[in-house]
Nucleic acid binder design. Structure first.
Lengths: 153, 153
DNA sequence: TATTGTTATACTCTATAACTATA
DNA sequence: TATAGTTATAGAGTATAACAATA
């Protein structure tokens, strides 16, 4: 006689959130291999570099609104990037509480090198899918994201 | 005159790996809210509970093969679960290097309570998509996973 | 009083590798 | 020699909150 199962079984390998997490890890490692390899950035540093490369002069506060990073994570990452001379800053004259952050020449150079590599890695990953499939995937993930966020409230 | 951009710009919010990572975090928090809330399990502990609830008597080595956990992560999680009396163990008689792990009655009770809740949370998340869309999503993620793994080698 | 950003602290997680016991 | 599992240790990341400067 078999043990009575009172509920649907949970097979970890078929459990959507688990599978998603494993895939996320693989994707993340692919991208991280680009920015950790030669320039030894942390994930937070890489995100800040990406943001500031695109939009100069942001404050830490603005970066919190554009990324999932919190203010002390940013403060620490900035600290490290400052000592590696990737970032310089000025105080906002109109409101001295704000610091305006910029990439240094060195920071910009690294940014210019990394962006094509990272975009290329993204492209490589996505060659697994046709253009239509990529579009479909984005739609599905958007729906899922909306629901996941809703459920967290 | 505008600054010359020598490459395609990288907009973090539209960068697939970034979006994926944000979504993963939201999904993971949804599931974690179930197993951390009442029983205060860590993610590793939860995964081990899920595995052992399904298959009794596994060794730590076997668990490494069924999850993304490594042996010392398992060793530590087991340690904590042992002191919370969720797990008991016996030595394999044929090869004394192997430990066979089992849920205690208490561990099983928690397992029986958590599985329906966790599956329900998964279901809630997936209501964002139709059955067809869920199937499609799984196919697309599988393809992506294959590619991501391949690129890591 | 409220906000920006820094710092302190304690905690969790991770990675590497040395260690034991068994084979 | 090789394997299963434990332990030590240092580093990275996280969460909470107190803090200084400015508004």
């Amino acid at each position: 006689m078999q043990k009575t199962v009172k509920h649907k079984p949970l097979i970890l390998n078929k459990f959507f959130p688990y599978r998603f997490s494993i895939l996320q890890q693989a994707i993340s490692e692919n991208i991280a291999s680009v920015y950790t390899g030669e320039f030894d950035l942390s994930r937070h540093e890489w995100r800040i570099l990406a943001i500031l490369g695109e939009q100069s002069g942001l404050s830490a506060k603005q970066i919190t609104l554009l990324t999932s990073l919190e203010k002390m994570q940013i403060s620490r990452a900035i600290n490290s990037m400052r000592s590696n001379e990737l970032i310089k800053e000025t105080v906002n004259i109109k409101d001295k509480r704000f610091t305006q952050l910029y990439l240094t020449d060195k920071g910009q150079k690294i940014y210019q090198i990394l962006v094509p590599r990272v975009l290329n890695k993204e492209k490589e990953l996505l060659t697994a899918l046709s253009k239509d499939e990529q579009k479909k995937l984005n739609q599905l993930l958007d729906k899922l994201h909306q629901k996941a966020t809703l459920l967290l409230e």
